[in-house]
């Protein structure tokens, strides 16, 4: 319903300044970090001049590059497995309701409900008990779990918004089930799948707590490496790496949201 916001009756005192303060609070730290990452000074928080040197230093740090490569391998693997499983699950959950649907739906979002630290230690105990070597594989297995709901929700939302008449029309025109899926449902679902995949990718790339506990020595990811650096102290190199991570996340999420808005 439309309201006339120019009507003074709708102006509640203090609402606008509060909202302005909110957005300033939300974005000030991000802006400060990005600005300081271009600072030439060694002291990290005192501005002396523009420079991209710290990015060069950060990007030539071999340990960090190795950690970044681990993160990438984990994120890509977890995303591919999770998005595939989530797409199938969304296709199965859509349309008619069935008995036990609530339980299945709860199971699919369970990873979002359980506190990260609990997931981390439960998974660690589980891997130790069944004798899985901690490393890249164990981290991929653990990441896939929490990537599934992040991939599932946008795919499911897109399916629910789709006109069922389109697939029915394909059937009326003698497409078999596979053809109807391949030529009608899948192309329409594609933006949802891409959007879900990008969200899982970013959520895996950014994860710290679960990787930290399940990773073991062989699977240092970029966030774990950054954690170690922060522990050592605030340096301009950390500023640069952090700003890079920040920018990558923001770019990916923006793309994901733009793709999701592609019309049916």
């Amino acid at each position: 319903m439309k309201i006339d916001t120019s009507n003074p009756l709708w102006r509640f005192r203090g609402i606008t300044p509060m909202a302005m303060f909110f957005f300033a609070y939300l974005y000030l730290p991000i802006l400060v970090l990005i600005v300081l990452s271009f600072n030439e000074n060694r002291l990290a928080t005192i501005w002396t001049g523009f420079s991209t040197d710290w990015y060069r230093v950060a990007l030539s740090n071999d340990d960090m590059l190795r950690a970044a490569k681990n993160s990438l391998v984990i994120a890509v693997s977890a995303t591919v497995i999770a998005t595939t499983a989530a797409t199938l699950a969304a296709l199965g959950m859509a349309r008619q309701r069935f008995r036990g649907e609530t339980g299945v739906a709860a199971m699919l979002v369970l990873p979002l409900l359980v506190p990260e630290i609990v997931t981390a230690i439960a998974t660690l105990l589980f891997f130790v008990a069944i004798g899985v070597q901690l490393g890249l594989i164990s981290v991929i297995a653990a990441h896939t779990v929490f990537c599934i709901p992040f991939a599932y929700l946008p795919i499911r939302a897109r399916l629910d918004g789709m006109d069922p008449a389109l697939a029915e029309a394909a059937n009326d025109l003698y497409a078999n089930e596979w053809q109807a899926f391949r030529r009608v449902t899948f192309p329409l679902l594609w933006p949802g799948i891409m959007s879900g995949a990008m969200l899982s990718f970013i959520i895996s790339l950014d994860d710290f707590v679960i990787s930290y506990f399940v990773g073991g020595a062989g699977a240092t990811t970029l966030p774990i490496y950054i954690f170690g650096m922060i522990r050592m102290g605030i340096t301009p190199e950390v500023n640069a790496v952090s700003a890079l991570m920040l920018i990558i996340s923001i770019v990916f999420v923006s793309i994901s949201f733009l793709i999701d808005r592609i019309r049916y």
Binding site: L28, P29, I30, V32, L33, L36, A44, T45, L199, I202, I203, L205, D206, F208, P223, I226, F227, I230, I234, V238, N239, S242, M245, L246, S249, I250, F252, V253
Partner: peptide, 14 residues
């Protein structure tokens, strides 16, 4: 959607 370490680190700078 941004890294939680990075967000907290930004507050350390502030």
């Amino acid at each position: 959607w941004t890294n939680i370490l990075v967000r907290n680190y930004a507050w350390m700078l502030l």
